[in-house]
């Protein structure tokens, strides 16, 4: 079943995507189809099955609390689309 345009808009808002009307309509149908297929997993009884959130049999992987040199500022900022006073400039928040 297709998603509603409102649902698509809500998800797009969460994902910070501005979609055209055309995209919204296409996604509504496509996501509906994909989700319907994805829902086949709900045919499976998973009572008592622990979700598998980490596949590796490994725990407690740490680094020591040791300061390492940071990146040179010019280097780390070199990909920044808009830099001012050694900082990333962004338009107003509200």
């Amino acid at each position: 079943m297709a998603l509603t345009i409102k649902e698509v808009e809500h998800v797009a808002m969460l994902a910070r995507l501005s979609l055209s009307q055309q995209e919204k309509e296409t996604f509504a149908v496509q996501l509906g189809t994909i989700l319907e297929y994805a829902s086949t997993i709900n045919q499976l009884n998973t009572d008592g099955v622990e979700p598998l959130d980490h596949i590796l049999p490994v725990f407690n992987v740490f680094r020591e609390d040791q300061v390492e040199p940071s990146a040179p500022r010019e280097e780390i900022l070199s990909n920044g689309p808009l830099i001012e006073d050694g900082q990333y400039r962004v338009p107003k928040i509200l």
């Binding site: 609390d65 040791q66 300061v67 390492e68 990146a71 780390i76 050694g86």
Partner: peptide, 21 residues
């Protein structure tokens, strides 16, 4: 002394973007 997920210093008051990686 260092950040939670990398080796950058946590010292307070540095110039902007000088304790980053």
């Amino acid at each position: 002394d260092s950040k939670i997920f990398c080796g950058c210093s946590t010292a307070f008051g540095a110039e902007p973007n000088t304790q980053v990686c």
